[in-house]
Structure formats: structure tokens, C-alpha cells
């Protein structure tokens, strides 16, 4: 009997670089992507800063992760969402979001989807597990 595919959501609510949460969370997502799970990622609160394009961490002397985020679609992580209110409260627009991959056929860049809190709450209710970073 086939087991039901687990629905696992990652919520990212911390800003990048000030702590290790965002980086560690990204590592866990890539590891989990190797398993047969239905993965989704939601950036909310200060977590939206993690998906702002143009992060240059060279002056900090640390490895950035924008390039890794750019490969999420390659890892078959395509359900990537940003909470609209968190984004707008922080003066960001959809234009500011980094690219998470490109469309196989059209080679068009793919960005996270901006959604409302009701939609996110409904997705949360469907999960087997939610991991927060």
C-alpha cells in the first residue's frame, strides 16, 4: 500500500544574516527535497527580507544564499510563497523578489508567489508538519 505523501511546510519569519536561521532553514529544505514529500515554503514577517534580490554578503565575509535560492526550482521546490502584508509593510514589492529558477520550456524566470494571509492560513491547515525558521 502506497503511503500518503507528507505535506511539509517551511515558514521563514527571521531576517537573513543577523542569525543563522534562514541559512540553516535553506539547508533543511534542500535535504528534505531529496525525499518524496510535498514541500512548500512561506516567507512572512522579517523572513521576506531573505527573498529580496541583490543581497551582497561579501563585505560581511560570509557566504550568501541568493544563488542557492535561485536553484529551488531545480530541487523541485516550486511552492514558494511570500505573505503580501509582510512584504508591503517592509516597503518591498514583487519586483524586489529574487528568482527561484526558470521555466523549463520558456526559460522565463520564476519568482515566489505573493499571496494573502487567508490563503496562507488555509495552506497551513492542510499540512502534516510545519517547520519554522
Amino acid at each position: 500500500m502506497a503511503e500518503e505523501v507528507k505535506k511539509i511546510m517551511f515558514t521563514v519569519r527571521k531576517a537573513p544574516h543577523g542569525s543563522i536561521y534562514v541559512y540553516e532553514g535553506l539547508e533543511v529544505k534542500l535535504i528534505m527535497a531529496a525525499y518524496d514529500a510535498d514541500i512548500s515554503v512561506v516567507f512572512m514577517d522579517d523572513g521576506v527580507f531573505a527573498v529580496k534580490q541583490g543581497q551582497d554578503t561579501k563585505p560581511l565575509g560570509i557566504k550568501g544564499f541568493e544563488a542557492t535560492y535561485g536553484a529551488l526550482v531545480d530541487y523541485e521546490i516550486t511552492k514558494v510563497f511570500v505573505d503580501r502584508q509582510s512584504m508591503e509593510e517592509r516597503g518591498m514589492t514583487e519586483e524586489d523578489l529574487l528568482v527561484i529558477g526558470e521555466d523549463e520550456d520558456t526559460e522565463e524566470p520564476i519568482k515566489p508567489q505573493v499571496v494573502g494571509s487567508d490563503e496562507i492560513a488555509a495552506m497551513m491547515a492542510e499540512q502534516h508538519n510545519i517547520l519554522s525558521f
Binding site: 519569519r13 512572512m44 514577517d45 502584508q85 509582510s86 494571509s117 496562507i120 492560513a121 488555509a122 497551513m124 491547515a125
Partner: peptide
Amino acid sequence: NTTLESCIRFVR
């Protein structure tokens, strides 16, 4: 911080 406020925004 605003964690509780965020939480309440997503409560169903």
C-alpha cells in the same frame, strides 16, 4: 516583538 500579532493574523 510582533510575533503574537502575526500569529493572530493567520489563526483560523
